[in-house]
Write a protein that binds this DNA or RNA. Sequence first.
DNA 1: CTGGAATGAATTTGTAATACTTTATAGCAG
DNA 2: CTGCTATAAAGTATTACAAATTCATTCCAG
Lengths: 235, 235
Amino acid sequence: MVKPVVVRNLHGQVVQELGRLIVGGEIAPGENLPREELLAERMKVSRTALREAMKVLSAKGLIESKQKTGTRVRDTLHWNQLDADVLAWRCASMPTEDFVEKLAEMREVIEPAAAAAAARRRSAEQLAAIEGAYEAMAAANGREEWSVADLAFHEAILHATHNELMISLFSVVETALGSYLALSARKAIDFKYSLPHHKKVLDAIRRRQPEVARAAMQKTVSDSRSNIRRHTKKT
Amino acid sequence: MVKPVVVRNLHGQVVQELGRLIVGGEIAPGENLPREELLAERMKVSRTALREAMKVLSAKGLIESKQKTGTRVRDTLHWNQLDADVLAWRCASMPTEDFVEKLAEMREVIEPAAAAAAARRRSAEQLAAIEGAYEAMAAANGREEWSVADLAFHEAILHATHNELMISLFSVVETALGSYLALSARKAIDFKYSLPHHKKVLDAIRRRQPEVARAAMQKTVSDSRSNIRRHTKKT
DNA sequence: CTGGAATGAATTTGTAATACTTTATAGCAG
DNA sequence: CTGCTATAAAGTATTACAAATTCATTCCAG
């Protein structure tokens, strides 16, 4: 569930290792990392494997290689913040509430807009999918079960937008938030407290009322956000 | 300005070439591409160069390599839609108005939210930057000059949000939209028609009125969108 | 005839050695 | 002091080969 991205490839491990180091700030932007030969030796891999890893990191905008100059870490401005790996590394290295805030803000931006778009463009099947997820939420027995259905609900709405950019953005943000959402799960007693909110969203989408859907989703999601905030503050 | 991404590296060229092929749909998802040796030969590069390219593509989620099975194109669902390269390839391959719509929709989601956040959190310097960009817009002499200032204005607002995820998203979407925006530039006569809208946004941010800023930006950006739509329809 | 284990072959993964290309820098000439 | 040139350092690229994985086939037992 938390995406245990088991990397089987050797170069994949190198990517993970270096990525964590860089995003974690152990190697500051502007700084050069050791030259290929040394680094390869130090990491116990061949130079070729290291190069493959560096190509990946450079595709994510983290590093930049030039001949003679060496390889250096690029400024945070350039790196691909929306890449799933980069996000994961940030989550791992800086679990500050500040970052969670930013993620939550993104979610709060996307989801109401998505709900509105879904209300405009959903097909009959997609509405059925959303309804199905809602039923599952209503019927959920435990917190675990409820979370799964909840995620399915939001995903179904995203798909109904017919905009794969939005879907992609959502899924990236959501998996990054995932761990924190789990942490901040409410007490078992009232884990269904937001069901009525979801109902409103569903109804608005069914009736094709974009603005109503937007408002309802806004409420749902900002509620969940303040909830997260309360929890992270507490820790 | 339009990011002429000159790739000097050999493997970079291979990445571009294969990326275009895949995103352009010439190699359908689920399909296997020729095995490394053949492909390398066909592209006139060494296997190593090809492999480095494949690692990059697989980091972008486009392909998946397994031993014995070969390398196959992954389903569109998995690929990293928000990657700058992927987006660029899509722009190059499917310049349908449909895709422009999606990009514009993203923009319409981000910018109002960003304006609101900026109104809440902007520092004095950031406000000054926004004002500076606005002055430049007002003083612009030609369409070209105006576009530059316009972009600076929106960028300054994004930076004032203090949310690098949003900044990153914006810059990706914006560069992808860039070419189309240039295409849909209005007649030279009234290229400043949206200046009043921008003024309202600026004022709201200065006075720290999030909701006002949001509404004003909403108007600005939806206006520009319908403008784009009109133009792409025409072609 | 069916099902499961052993075998073999195809293909990616990983390593190593070597030659090339670019470019920063130092040193020399003017 | 300026500007050219030589050099060496670093990434770039190619080749060849060893290893691991897994799919497909075959063969034997039930």
